[in-house]
Write a protein that binds this DNA or RNA. Structure first.
Length: 450
RNA sequence: GUGGCCAUAGCUCAGUUGGUUAGAGCAUCAGAUUGUGGUUCUGAGGGUCGUGGGUUCGAGCCCCAUUGGCCACCCCA
């Protein structure tokens, strides 16, 4: 006998969990639709060469690869070199995110799509990462992206989506942090080492964790001079309100035209005057975000600090994403929600509403052969009205039927015993309060199963 | 990919310097109670102690390997 198990980093979702997850999905989907985004689904697997090289060196290692079918060993012997061997063994992989498959789709359908194309996508992705809290090997992303529009109003609206979804979910204390990649590029320019952009951003992204001295050491270690580090220091000391930060940036980075452009963009997104927010986005110059295809605004959504979860969403603008697939010049901007982490956060803060957790409202209890058909008929009438109802199928003791209702979390039972059958009446009991009342059969359809 | 901690009943965990038949609570099932659950009482079932080796007269306990979980790094949702 094989001991039943599932692969590391994957999970089963029981009925109660699926309901709560669906509540999150619904909230996000409804908002995406409200903002005019259209649904898209792509296959779980992509061609391996669609994915490799898009996520950086680290990312490539985390791609789940799919072994080719057929006579692997015989095939392998035909290979002339290791590169050929690799393709003989594996040419498909599980999708790593939703953005690259989207870019691939846009290029394939470029002649059919009405640009700008606004799509949303909510599907699982897979990463061969080491699991821990808030990190799984199979998890869902919910992305909304706009491709083929340079308007900064897209950025504004995407920030509004974050704001609306988190507000709807009752997630108080969430933070949406924004930065602009051009500002970071400007910093690297100012130092005179634009090729060090990635090293610099990775280091300053760690400010929260390792402190300003830690960042300094890491930068020196990565090959910056003391003078360079001093410039970064000034950059990291930028503080105050959003407007104050932007002003300080303007002064510090005035030598870089790129940076000025980024500051300008950020200023527009934050001060367009057209949007309203429950929790205004916060400028965070240390926000870097790993994916190296971002070129404009970058954004990260963070859980309330009380729950140590970190990022529950992220996104940004990437010029020329589709260029990788032979369609240059199309700009995209998008955001992503990490449903699995949002679930963990809502669960920890107990923010799931009761409505997201119940299924069947009414269970009919009966005494056996005589009352069962009558109960069944009442049940159908309730279903007609759109009330989720069930009847206990087996002839069992009342005791057992009650326990079943209780365990399932069904709020109401309707009892159809001998006396009710004779009187043509029904006893309705609300299990949580224990209140029970007898009504005539005709009143059933008017009863409020709240 | 690197390192640390952990793994005993369906769940949460006890288990003495290695010593006879591995325990508890909750959960499950049956009954006490003649149409009424979530409270009470009685009883029952359920474990090759994650897996595979080793040390020993003897291993849940010690050693090695392996798998999985948690955590930190890396990276990220």
């Amino acid at each position: 006998m094989i001991k039943p198990s599932i692969p590391k980093g994957t999970r089963d979702f029981g009925p109660a969990v699926v309901r709560k997850r669906n509540y999150i999905f619904q909230t996000i989907r409804e908002t995406f639709e409200l903002f005019g985004f259209q649904p898209l689904e792509t296959p779980a697997m992509e061609n391996l060469n669609t994915l490799t090289g898009k996520y950086g060196e680290e990312g490539d290692k985390l791609i789940f690869k799919i072994l080719n079918n057929g006579e692997i060993l015989g095939q392998a012997q035909l290979a002339k070199d290791s590169k050929e061997l690799a393709t003989l063994l594996c040419e498909k992989a599980l999708r790593y995110d939703l953005t690259i498959p989207f870019a691939r789709y846009v290029v394939m359908k470029q002649h059919e799509l009405a640009l700008p194309f606004k799509r949303y996508q909510m599907q699982p992705v897979w990463r061969a990462d080491n699991p821990q809290r808030g990190r799984y090997r199979e998890f869902y992303q919910c992305d909304a992206d706009v491709v083929g529009s340079n308007s900064l109003l897209n950025e504004v609206e995407l920030l509004m989506i974050y704001d609306r979804v988190f507000s709807k979910l009752g997630l108080q204390g969430y933070e949406v942090r924004v930065n602009n990649r051009k500002i970071l590029s400007g910093l690297a320019e100012l130092i005179g080492k634009p090729e060090m952009l990635t090293d610099i951003t990775i280091s300053i992204d760690k400010l929260d964790k390792i402190g300003i001295e830690g960042v300094q050491q890491e930068l020196l270690h990565r090959g910056l001079s003391h003078q360079d580090v001093e410039i970064v220091n000034n950059f990291l000391r930028i503080d105050g309100s959003n407007d104050e930060k932007l002003q300080q940036l303007q002064v510090l980075l005035q030598a870089s035209a790129t940076a000025q452009k980024g500051i300008e963009e950020l200023a527009f997104v934050l001060n367009s005057g057209m949007a309203t927010f429950n929790a205004a986005p916060i400028v965070d110059v240390t926000l870097a975000r790993g994916l190296n295809y971002y070129t404009g605004m970058i954004v990260e959504a963070k859980a309330p600090p009380a729950v140590k979860m970190g990022s529950i969403g992220g996104g940004g603008r990437y010029d020329d994403l589709t260029g990788l697939f032979g369609l240059p010049g199309l700009s995209g901007v998008g955001i992503s929600f990490g449903v699995d982490r949002i679930y963990d956060v809502l669960e920890e803060l107990q923010l799931f509403p009761a409505a997201a957790q119940q299924s069947t409202r009414v269970l009919f209890l009966h005494m056996g052969a005589e009352s069962l058909p009558v109960a069944f008929n009442y049940m159908m009438q309730l279903r007609e009205k759109g009330i989720a109802a069930e009847v206990f199928h087996e002839a069992a003791k009342m005791d057992k039927q009650f326990k079943y209702a209780d365990k399932r979390g069904i709020p109401y039972v309707v009892i159809l015993g001998e006396s009710e059958l004779q009187e043509n009446s029904l006893s309705i009991k609300h299990l949580q309060t224990g209140q029970q009342q007898k009504i005539s059969a005709g009143e059933l359809l008017n009863f409020q199963f709240v």
